[in-house]
Each structure stands twice: as C-alpha cells, then as structure tokens.
Amino acid sequence: MGTSLTSEFWERFTLLLFAAMGVTFVLAALFDALALRRQNRRTHRPSVPPTRAPHRAETADHRPSVRC
C-alpha cells in the first residue's frame, strides 16, 4: 500500500524549508554581530593609568633610609 506525496505536501515542505533557512541565516548573522561587538569591546577598552602609591610627606624627625 504505497502513498504518493502530493503537490500540497511539496508546497508546504518548500515553504517550511525556506522559512527555516531564513531563520537560521538571521540568527547566525545576529550571533556573529554580537560576538564581534564583544570582541571589539575587549580590545578597545580605555587604558586605565596605573595607580601610584600616595606620597608620604617626610617630617623633621624622620630620616630617610639609605640602601645600597
């Protein structure tokens, strides 16, 4: 008992196939754009100047140590 695939089946199959391909391409492009944006953010971060230790004011009763 064989059944044949009707023209209505092929029409729906073609429609669903192209719809799935379109969704796949759109999602792939979206994820690529997001990945590139994330990568660009990491490489173009503004550099933070290194923090320096606060300068200690020397007082009259303190003699600086001399190390050779």
Rank of each mutant, 00 (worst) to 15 (best):
G2M: 09
T3G: 12
T3F: 11
S4C: 03
S4P: 03
S4T: 05
S4D: 06
L5S: 01
L5K: 07
T6P: 00
S7I: 05
S7L: 07
F9P: 00
W10D: 06
E11K: 08
E11D: 08
E11V: 02
E11T: 04
E11F: 09
E11Q: 06
F13W: 11
F13L: 07
F13P: 02
T14N: 12
L15H: 06
L15G: 02
L16Y: 06
L16M: 14
L17S: 14
F18T: 10
F18I: 08
A19N: 07
A19H: 05
A20F: 04
A20S: 08
M21I: 09
G22K: 06
G22A: 14
G22I: 01
V23H: 06
T24V: 11
F25E: 06
F25L: 10
F25M: 11
V26T: 12
V26S: 06
A28R: 03
A28S: 00
A29C: 10
A29H: 02
A29E: 01
A29V: 03
A29R: 01
L30R: 05
L30S: 09
L30I: 15
F31T: 15
D32R: 12
D32M: 14
D32V: 15
D32N: 15
A33G: 15
L34S: 10
L34T: 04
L34R: 12
L34H: 06
L34W: 12
R37S: 12
R37A: 14
R37G: 10
R38D: 12
N40L: 09
N40G: 05
R41A: 09
R41N: 08
R42Y: 04
R42N: 01
R42V: 05
H44D: 13
H44I: 00
H44P: 05
R45D: 03
R45V: 03
R45S: 01
R45A: 05
R45K: 09
P46C: 01
S47R: 14
V48F: 05
V48G: 00
V48E: 02
P49C: 01
P50V: 14
T51S: 10
R52P: 07
R52Y: 12
R52S: 13
A53I: 07
A53N: 11
P54A: 15
P54H: 03
P54Y: 05
P54D: 11
P54R: 11
H55M: 07
H55W: 15
R56N: 09
R56Q: 14
A57R: 14
A57N: 14
E58S: 11
E58T: 14
E58F: 14
T59V: 02
T59M: 06
A60E: 09
A60G: 04
A60R: 13
H62P: 00
H62C: 11
H62Y: 10
H62A: 13
R63K: 11
R63I: 15
